[in-house]
Design a protein around this nucleic acid. Structure first.
Length: 309
RNA sequence: GGUCUGAUGGGCGAGUGGCUUAACCAACGGUCUGCAAAACCGUCUACAGCGGUUCGAAUCCGCUUCAGACCU
C-alpha cells in the first residue's frame, strides 16, 4: 500500500481529548519532534481577549511551535464549524507545501469532524430567518416548530431529538433556505482528504482528570480570569462568550452568586464539558488513546499508522 | 451509670401505617453536519441491625449498635 501513501500530501496528527488532559503540551512536543506547525481545533481559543479562560497555549508554547487559529479573530466575528473547515483546509493546503507533518489540537469535536470528515454542502445560518425562528420558538414553543418540520421533513422529524430547540431550528432553517429536506441533504458520508490522518486521544483516570481541571480553574483565577471576564461583560450576549468560565462570572457580576460559588460552578461545568468531550471522542474508533506523557508509545503509534496507509 | 434526641440512596433533605421511584445537588451513560466550552436526552428505587404488632411499616412497639446532648 506504499502507493497509497505517495498519493497523500502529508500527515495530519490530530490530538483530541477532554479539557485539561494535557493536549496542548503534547501537541507542542509532537510539533517539535516532527518540525510541524499546529492548527487549533478549538472553537473558543480562536478569539482574542479570552486567553485565560480558554486556556490558550502560553507564549512559550506558541514560541516553540507556530500556532494557527489561536486568538486570531475578534469575539464579534462570525465563526462556526463550516467556516473552520474551509479556512483550516486552505491553511493545510499551504502548510503541506512545506511540511510533511502538521499537528491539529483541540477539544471541539465538531470542528475535528469538520476538518477530518468534512461537512455536507448546507447553507450557513441566515441571520434574519434564524431570529424569526427564535422568536417563534419563544412565543409558540418548540411544538410549533416541530409541527412545521413534520410537514417539511417528516423523516428527519421522526428520528431527531425534538426536544432540542437548537436542532429543530437548524433543521427547519435548512429546509426553508433550500426548499429541500434536511434529511436528503445530509449525506452521512465523510469526505476523503488528500492527507493522512492519525488521531491521538489523551486521557487519564477520571478522578485525576477532575482534580487537574479543578486546580486549573483555581490557577486561572490566580492568573486574572476575573478581570478578563469583566472586560468582556459588555459583550456577554455574543455567541463567543457562551463559554464555561465566562457565563458563571457574568452571573457573579450580576450579583447572582458569590465569587466562590461562581468558581465552583466553573469547575463543575468544566468537568461536565470534559465528560461530553469524552462521550464524543469515544465513539471514534480510529483514535489511539494514551496518557499525555507517554510520548514513546504515541510516536510509535503514529509511525505504525503512517506506514499502514 | 442514667435520661433524652437522632440514625433515610454519594451529598443534602422531605415524608408520622397503605400513590411517594419525594425534591434538589453531585456522579454516571448517551445524542451530535454551520450556535458545539452550545443545545438536548437518559440512569442512580434508600430508609442502621434484629425481632414483633398489622391484611400492610421508612412511618407503631421492643432489643442491639452507633452518634449527639444533658444529668449524677
Amino acid at each position: 500500500m506504499a502507493t497509497m501513501m505517495s498519493s497523500k500530501r502529508g500527515t495530519l496528527i490530530v490530538v483530541v481529548g477532554p479539557t485539561g488532559s494535557g493536549k496542548s503540551a503534547l501537541a507542542v512536543e509532537l510539533a517539535q519532534h516532527f518540525s510541524a506547525p499546529i492548527i487549533s481545533t478549538d472553537s473558543r481559543q480562536v478569539y482574542r481577549g479570552m486567553a485565560i479562560g480558554t486556556a490558550q497555549p502560553t507564549p512559550q508554547e506558541q514560541a516553540a511551535a507556530k500556532h494557527y487559529f489561536i486568538a486570531d479573530r475578534d469575539i464579534h466575528d462570525e465563526f462556526n464549524s463550516g467556516r473552520f473547515e474551509q479556512e483550516a483546509l486552505a491553511r493545510l493546503d499551504e502548510l503541506f507545501k512545506t511540511h510533511e507533518y502538521v499537528v491539529a489540537v483541540g477539544g471541539s469535536g465538531l470542528y475535528v469532524q469538520a476538518l477530518c470528515d468534512g461537512m455536507d454542502d448546507l447553507p450557513e445560518a441566515d441571520e434574519k430567518l434564524r431570529s424569526e425562528l427564535k422568536q417563534r420558538l419563544e412565543r409558540e414553543g418548540v411544538e410549533s416548530l416541530v409541527a412545521e418540520l413534520r410537514e417539511l421533513d417528516p423523516e428527519y422529524a421522526s428520528q431527531m431529538d425534538i426536544s432540542n430547540p437548537q436542532r429543530v431550528v437548524r433543521a427547519l432553517e435548512v429546509c426553508l433556505l433550500t426548499g429541500k429536506r434536511y434529511s436528503e441533504l445530509r449525506s452521512g458520508r465523510s469526505t476523503e482528504r488528500d492527507f493522512n490522518i492519525v488521531k491521538i486521544g489523551t486521557d487519564m483516570p477520571r478522578d485525576i482528570l477532575y482534580d487537574r481541571i479543578n486546580r486549573r480553574v483555581d490557577m486561572m483565577v490566580t492568573d486574572g480570569l476575573v478581570d478578563e471576564v469583566r472586560a468582556l461583560l459588555p459583550y456577554r450576549e455574543l455567541n463567543s462568550l457562551q463559554t464555561v468560565g465566562y457565563r458563571e462570572l457574568f452571573d457573579y457580576f450580576d450579583g447572582n452568586s458569590t465569587l466562590e460559588e461562581a468558581i465552583e460552578l466553573i469547575k463543575r461545568n468544566s468537568r461536565r464539558y470534559a465528560k461530553r468531550q469524552l462521550t464524543w471522542f469515544r465513539r471514534d474508533s480510529s483514535i489511539g488513546w494514551f496518557a499525555p506523557t507517554d510520548l514513546d508509545a504515541i510516536l510509535s503509534f503514529i509511525d505504525a499508522a503512517t506506514k499502514q496507509e
